[in-house]
Design a binder for these strands. Structure first.
Lengths: 232, 232
DNA sequence: GTTCGCAAGATTGTCAACAATCAGTTTCGA
DNA sequence: TCGAAACTGATTGTTGACAATCTTGCGAAC
């Protein structure tokens, strides 16, 4: 009866190197934007992106839609997409939101931290102090990100985590600027140490306050830039 | 020949927006989901949505993708979209985030409130008290939304505003449940009055604390539901 | 009676061609 | 000379068809 069969498992392998899909295009484009390869206000022409990433226009389009939802690109009808410009006022707003969100996360981390995680926090604090003392600002900046990331892991607050991630991405360029401001490490190091201590001692209220004061000082710097007309 | 472009009427899409049909489909579908017409877990088949909204499949797909970004629907590859189910644990997380965001907004509202807006707040407070005293819970619920909305308007914090909007949408069904719990209005009315007083007196710290305590009491209710397995 | 495999149907994913629109340039008339 | 209408090239928006994938129902084997 069934003479011919086995048609289901046939898979067509594309050896043209076009195995990429929407997700790949989105991630690569996001990385390119965050790395500064595309500057704010720069147009993102679909044809160029096709050439760059080797993805079909359809998937490029979906990727742009996604990044628009993340607030990284702005799409105007019939005018295409461009890297979204973020004003200083908006930077302050976003940082304010980050302040309260990371405060919430720090508080929850203080409630849930394990002993092993507490030691890891201590270790990062030690490395940060050494980095500042020896003037390794780039290393300090990396440790900064690692600390905030660890706190988010400890808290395990998926909702806040996701939002903080998208907000951080929007500020990627500005944050890099800020961490290199003269005097910043000397100001922020004791703040970081307070946060670590509070979480290690499992004190949610102090952890939240410390985290908020830390980010509030960043907002102060931004406000001073605003008055000086330090345009980005 | 004077080719008079009389395209008035349907074609009047402003160039400020992005997609015309896409936006319409998205808004209508969101309204349908929030009104409970589609229940959580229900599949959203593209063909049916085309029939329902009279929009092309292309735009339906874009709308679904947008709503996925808003956290209202969940898209699985090759399996289509469905109304996202939100667990009680996630409801608590979302409400926690709302707590800190609305706290931030309340604080900023206290800094920026005008005299006219202060009177409007007072008026809403008065109407709320009357609604509770006369047992008009549905009216009280409406006033509740109006109060929170007015506070957001006063604050003028676009970033927090947008996030709160998407979070509220995700909880639309749960919030409706909560506002009808017995005893809730008697608990929340004095909380609302504290918030109004603090903003009117231009005290950001107290306004933030009052708002947070208000929403924290909602979280307490959710936690009690969690222990009882959602069956009171 | 149950379980497994396999085809048929339903549904979503992708593409390439076509239509609509925009930005810049040219042409025409006062 | 100046301004406005019309043209051109580039870019995006949309459609319909087709391919890939999942789900369902049926029948055979145990």
């Amino acid at each position: 009866m069934s003479a011919e069969k086995n048609l289901t498992g046939v898979r067509r392998a594309r050896d043209t190197g076009e195995g990429k899909d929407k997700a790949a295009a989105r991630d690569e484009l996001r990385t390119a934007i965050l790395s500064g390869e595309y500057m704010p206000g720069e147009r993102l022409v679909e044809a160029q992106l096709i050439e760059r990433f080797g993805v079909s226009r359809f998937n490029i389009r979906l990727a742009l839609q996604d990044l628009s939802g993340e607030g990284l690109v702005e799409i105007q009808r019939n005018r295409g997409a461009q890297v979204r410009k973020i004003s200083l006022a908006e930077t302050i707003e976003i940082t304010q939101v980050r302040m309260v969100l990371e405060g919430l996360v720090a508080a929850q981390a203080a409630e849930r931290v394990t002993d092993a995680q507490a030691s890891e926090l201590d270790e990062i604090g030690l490395l940060m102090r050494r980095a500042v003392e020896s003037g390794e600002f780039r290393r300090y900046s990396d440790l900064n990100q690692r600390l905030h990331g660890l706190i988010r892991t400890i808290a395990g607050h998926a909702t806040a985590d996701r939002l903080i991630g998208t907000l951080r991405a929007q500020l990627a360029r500005h944050q890099f600027m800020l961490s290199l401001l003269p005097g910043r490490p000397q100001t922020s190091l004791p703040q970081h140490e307070r946060i670590i201590t509070a979480i290690r001692e499992r004190d949610p209220a102090v952890a939240e306050t410390a985290m908020r004061e830390h980010i509030a000082s960043v907002i102060e710097v931004l406000r001073s830039l605003e008055e000086n007309g330090g345009h980005p």
